[in-house]
């Protein structure tokens, strides 16, 4: 049927077959295309330069002092002395960041659940959202001062706990906002499907919404932890300093970031070496935790296939 109609049509009326090859495009269009692509690749490379240089320099300068002993040895109480290690700072970083995470993760995730699943657009939720945004913008040194005035002066002791409080306050708004964004991405159809089976909202949140958003939530939490682990000003202000490992939250303590700040400011090569070593250690710790968090969250996350 169709073939006869095609054959019956006069050949002259058929349009010339279009040239579909890319080389048939106008020169201007091809040049624009190539130029735009080149620009994007260039932008990516330029963005990678500082990242690459930082990693290269930290490894190059830090590898010299790095050893297992460096990670556990006490910090020499005279900056000029060679040797020693960053053991107290590693201990302090782990215990302070850990305590800050233990305080801010449950609060932040529960807060985000309230905002997205319960409060939505009500007045309280809007107020909390605005406050979280404002808190994200508070400089860390201001948060340090706040904890210094409202806690350290009150108990009359600088401590790892005070530093954990300051870091927790810095992490909290980041966790709230990033978690809320991730919860918002979970399609409403899933909540409705769960509700239609007779699930209460809390049950729906725990069994359907959180698993669907877990990998994004973990990413946001890891960003907050990485930021807290690298914070210097509040720690210097409220934690005091330590030369021997202090695995408790009370009493003076120190962190890798604080030690980088102190040692890098010294003229002595030994101190500068320790600063680079501390920088390498800090980066490695953050990397290890990020990879570990990914592995753990991928176990909870729901598989697409």
């Amino acid at each position: 049927m169709t073939t006869t109609t095609t054959a019956a049509r006069p050949a002259s009326s058929a349009p010339a077959p279009a040239d579909l090859r890319r080389s048939a495009l106008p020169l201007r269009r091809r040049l624009t295309d190539g130029f735009a692509k080149g620009l994007m690749v260039l932008a990516l490379l330029v963005a990678l330069v500082p990242l690459g240089l930082v990693i290269y320099k930290v490894i190059e300068a830090g590898a010299g002092v790095m050893s297992l002993d460096f990670l556990v040895d006490d910090i020499p109480n005279s900056a000029r002395r060679a040797g020693g290690g960053m053991g107290p700072a590693v201990a302090g970083t782990l215990i302070i960041t850990g305590a800050a995470a233990a305080m801010s993760i449950p609060l932040g995730v529960l807060g985000a659940i309230y905002l997205n699943e319960y409060g939505k657009q009500n007045a309280l939720a809007r107020l909390i959202r605005t406050m979280a945004d404002v808190m994200t913008g508070v400089p860390s040194v201001v948060m340090g001062l706040f904890v210094y005035v409202s806690y350290v002066l009150l108990v009359k002791e600088q401590s790892g706990f005070a530093a954990a409080l300051a870091l927790g306050c810095l992490m909290l708004p980041i966790i709230i906002r990033s978690t809320e964004e991730m919860l918002r991405l979970v399609p409403d159809e899933l909540r409705q499907a769960s509700a239609a089976l007779g699930a209460r909202r809390w049950k729906t949140t725990v069994s359907v919404v959180l698993p669907a958003a877990i990998s994004g939530i973990v990413s946001g939490i890891m960003l907050a932890i990485a930021r807290a682990a690298g914070e210097t000003a509040p720690v210097v202000l409220v934690a005091g300093t330590a030369f021997v490992s202090n695995w408790s939250l009370s009493g003076d303590n120190t962190t890798l970031a604080a030690q980088i700040f102190k040692n890098a400011g010294e003229f002595f090569p030994a101190a500068q070496g320790r600063a680079w070593g501390a920088a390498l250690t800090l980066m490695a710790i953050v990397l290890v935790f990020t990879v570990a968090a990914r592995l753990i969250s991928s176990r909870f996350a729901i598989k697409e296939r």
Binding site: L190, Q192, A193, A196, L197, G198, A199, K203, I302, K303
Partner: peptide, 27 residues
Amino acid sequence: RRIGMVFQKPNPFPKSIYENVAYGLKI
């Protein structure tokens, strides 16, 4: 729980086939 619903767009949970069916029983 007594009046169930099936939606316009198929909306299985992003879980296994087994878990999808077992979910309602569990809750």
